[in-house]
């Protein structure tokens, strides 16, 4: 029987066979993640459970971030992947290559040119814009875990907004060491309601989430939870009235490649016992060097200026 336009054949109805779905995940996995992400945005800082799918990397290597990225991404996106500030480390290069093979999207190392940024443990130094999404990979989403190992009780504490033990933990650090030693994953209050672990970004990066222009999605694949910080939302690190929150002191550190100061630096120990410093945000460093040679766009405004002042006046004391 020959097909007429009114009786399509099976071939007309089915799409062409492919080795993989677009963006690897099948539609029903994406739908579940998308429903979860919408809930997360409506409840800033609340950890929404989701069914974490198998992806071809091991749990703990960014599966949560990867699943969020794969559910968000479309042909119009430009992707950047960051691993601890770098674009070229094994984790970042692998994830970037995987997503680009599964979608064919353009990739970049320029934070302001990307529409979608997946990152492990850093927020870029340049101010992200209103249509950008930052996906952070989260190893441990539960800020209360160190004070309450039972997740059912921790959930009850979140429901009651009972964060006394978090304050006590910080206070004990003060008493014991004379300062707050919590370096990464600094507990922060989102929209005045839920305390989050902002993933192991340094203290330097936490203020960047406050009243940000971009949307941040934090996804923990192993722990199967996802939460979000919408644009223009308050994010306040827990701080005492008399002991203000402090970011890592970068004064006196100059990047040996670019000469930049007052940005988050990697310390490179030298044979003679001294140390060199270089920008942790490799994409930003690359942009500065390229711009200096007249080959590429000039770097844009950064969250912290050259004097180390944060761009929201009065936020850091």
């Amino acid at each position: 029987m020959t097909a007429t336009p009114s009786t399509p054949t099976l071939k007309d109805l089915a799409h062409q066979w492919q080795d993989h779905s677009y963006a690897f995940l099948d539609e029903s996995s994406k739908r579940e993640l998308r429903r979860t992400m919408l809930k997360a945005v409506a409840l800033p800082g609340y950890q929404v459970p989701y069914a974490s799918r198998e992806v071809p990397i091991a749990r703990g290597w960014g599966t949560g971030g990867l699943q969020a990225t794969l559910s968000l991404i479309g042909p119009k996106d430009t992707l950047k992947v960051i691993d601890q500030g770098a674009d070229d480390s094994v984790n970042a290069a692998n994830l970037r290559r995987f997503v680009s093979r599964m979608t064919g999207v353009a990739t970049t190392t320029d934070a302001t040119a990307a529409t979608l940024i997946q990152s492990r443990h850093r927020v870029p130094e340049e101010i992200l814009g209103e249509r950008q999404v930052l996906v952070l990979q989260v190893p441990d989403p539960e800020p209360l875990r160190s004070v309450e190992p039972d997740i059912s009780i921790a959930r009850q504490m979140h429901a009651d907004a009972d964060y006394g033990l978090m304050w006590l933990k910080l206070y004990e650090q003060l008493v014991r060491y004379g300062r707050i030693v919590q370096g990464a994953s600094y507990p922060s209050l989102v929209h005045g309601r839920y305390v989050i672990s902002p993933s192991p970004i340094p203290r330097w990066d936490v203020p960047k989430l406050h009243q940000a222009r971009h949307l941040t999605i934090l996804s923990a694949g192993r722990e199967k939870r996802l939460y979000a910080v919408p644009p223009y939302t308050d994010v306040r690190p827990l701080e005492f009235d008399d002991i203000p929150y402090a970011v890592e002191d970068q004064s006196g550190h100059t990047c040996f490649r670019t000469g930049v100061t007052q940005k988050f630096m990697n310390e490179l120990p030298q044979d003679d016992g001294s140390a060199l410093f270089e920008l942790s945000d490799a994409g930003y460093g690359e942009k500065i060097l390229n711009a200096a040679e007249g080959d590429g766009p000039a770097p844009e405004r950064t969250y912290f200026n050259d004097e180390g002042r944060f761009y929201h006046d009065g936020y850091l004391k």
């Binding site: 799409h15 080795d19 963006a23 998308r34 992400m37 919408l38 479309g74 599964m102």
Partner: peptide
Amino acid sequence: MATPVQTPFEAKTQEVFTALLWALSRP
């Protein structure tokens, strides 16, 4: 290996989801 492409249905849902996500992110 050929790069997978979106089916028309996938393209549509991705576009609608992006609109919904930004709608909720930017009331």
